[in-house]
Design a protein around this nucleic acid. Structure first.
Lengths: 275, 275
DNA sequence: GAGGATACTTTACGCCATAAGGAGATCTGG
DNA sequence: CCAGATCTCCTTATGGCGTAAAGTATCCTC
């Protein structure tokens, strides 16, 4: 399932992403443009938000704007580039202010939760190729904000790069898991939790030797009461705590002191989650 | 860009994934099947490996087997389910033996590198929806192996789940970044390193205020001599080290002692990478 | 040898992105 | 005020896709 098609020309995307916000259009002949790149991007996001990535077609976007599919090609080179623009626009939702936090753990946690929520608001973003080289301004701004949050940890450049990659990918991955469980639940009309139960039951039926083949998986499942790879803010939170402990371990000087102050306390099983 | 289409029916996929390896086909009438699910999956992988996900069509797979596209539907419910099978089959390449390592860091590192390499061998896997709920035997086996490797760390169940999610998503994410850079480089005929340089140059041209807008990003870029979100085993290695430090921080008892023994030494900039 | 199940084919449908070319609006230079 | 250029948007067409429907040939069981 879930294919993604070819990339757009990164040159075109880059130009559109970074292009002058107010193109100097003095003395243009021809009829006045009834649309704009911005309007098309907004319409695309609206379609994708409402009906999912599969429903995002040039026709659908055009229709939402009262035009034909081909009208969009006056503004945008193609669908791939439109997706690049949509992706960056959605990331631009992230709050940009330099929020001051006492410690960098809280700052990074805040950053991660904002990104996580943004992905869940726009699940189609998770279908856009990660880490593809078309870097938009909003994406870079988000990365800059992460670097700002991490600055007090004073990591070495190499370690900083590793931490940034690990954090971003972790947020994206856990958001994808959650979004997917949600989507499946919504599609089948089953409640979130029941869905995993149904899947487990079916698995047990098909592979009766499951507990012997996967003893640790079975143990983990029964210990935490859910599917191991699944969803949920809880996995997000505890995973993030693990990650941040790793970052702290690389912070010079403070070493052992800065590690897991109260973030690790989140991992106690009695925490009231889904907040 | 890079869309992925709708999911396959998970029930059908599950049945095929876990179905009896030797279907009891006593007394079947009709002509003998000239194909098999396995052969179709192999052909699909061959097509995707050779020409990429975009080239993977039912027609192409059928052609490789000397059949029409429709012939495949005798064996497989549809393309989505075929992709599920391909994905799990590719994961089955991972070595399964219980390799004994002295410490769990080495064991997990080994696990991660194997997964990373598998993704790079089959970049199309990264286009298959991550964390979607169709869990195949090979995927679960890989997870079980990770749990085995992590066992000496003796993490709490919650923390273990977080660590598993973080590790898997990290490997996948960094592999995606590397695969994408490779793909772009291959498509344009530019060498891997020059490619990032070209992109940076173009960015600098489009956004002349780049250094002021993204000071930390600029600093990191010049400190490590590359794009921050990019590719490469180096980021993979150092990021993994950060992650493992976090895991170590959650290991009870040993606490400070077990953290970053020699894995962190990998983060020194003079290491000969791309091994 | 008849009848039915099965493998595979041909054809067709409705999507998709988008190339090509045309119609009408709106500007500039005369 | 009027070319002619230019630009938006349309209609049409092309070649792909996944797959539904129906036909044909093959092979088994009875």
């Amino acid at each position: 399932m879930t294919v993604y098609a070819g990339q757009g020309d990164p040159r075109r995307s880059l130009t559109l992403l970074w292009g002058a916000p107010e193109e100097v259009r003095t003395g243009r002949s021809g009829p006045k443009p009834g649309l704009s790149v911005d309007a098309i991007v907004s319409a695309g996001i609206a379609v994708a938000d409402a009906d999912g990535m599969a429903a995002l077609s040039m026709r659908a976007v055009g229709e939402r704007l009262g035009r034909t599919a081909m009208a969009l090609y006056t503004y945008v080179p193609g669908k791939a580039e439109l997706l690049d623009l949509m992706h960056d626009r959605a990331l631009a939702e992230l709050p940009g202010g330099a929020t001051a936090f006492d410690d960098w753990r809280a700052a990074v946690t805040n950053w991660a939760e904002q990104l996580y929520d943004c992905y869940l608001r726009h699940p189609w973003m998770l279908q856009v190729s990660q880490a593809r080289p078309v870097l938009g301004p909003a994406e870079l701004a988000a990365m800059e904000r992460l670097l700002t949050a991490l600055q007090p940890a004073a990591l070495s450049p190499e370690r900083l790069r590793g931490a940034v990659a690990a954090l971003w990918q972790f947020v994206r991955g856990t958001a994808a898991a959650t979004a997917d469980a949600r989507g499946a639940a919504a599609a089948t009309g089953i409640a979130d939790e029941d869905w995993w139960a149904a899947r487990s039951a079916r698995l047990a039926e098909l592979a009766p030797d499951f507990p012997e083949r996967f003893p640790l998986l079975t143990a983990l499942q029964s210990a935490t009461g859910g599917a191991p790879e699944d969803s949920g803010r809880e996995v997000f939170r505890t995973g993030l705590a693990v990650l941040l402990d790793g970052v702290a371990a690389g912070a010079p000087g403070q070493g052992a002191r800065d590690r897991a102050p109260d973030m690790a306390a989140d991992t106690t099983p009695d925490s009231p989650d889904t907040a």
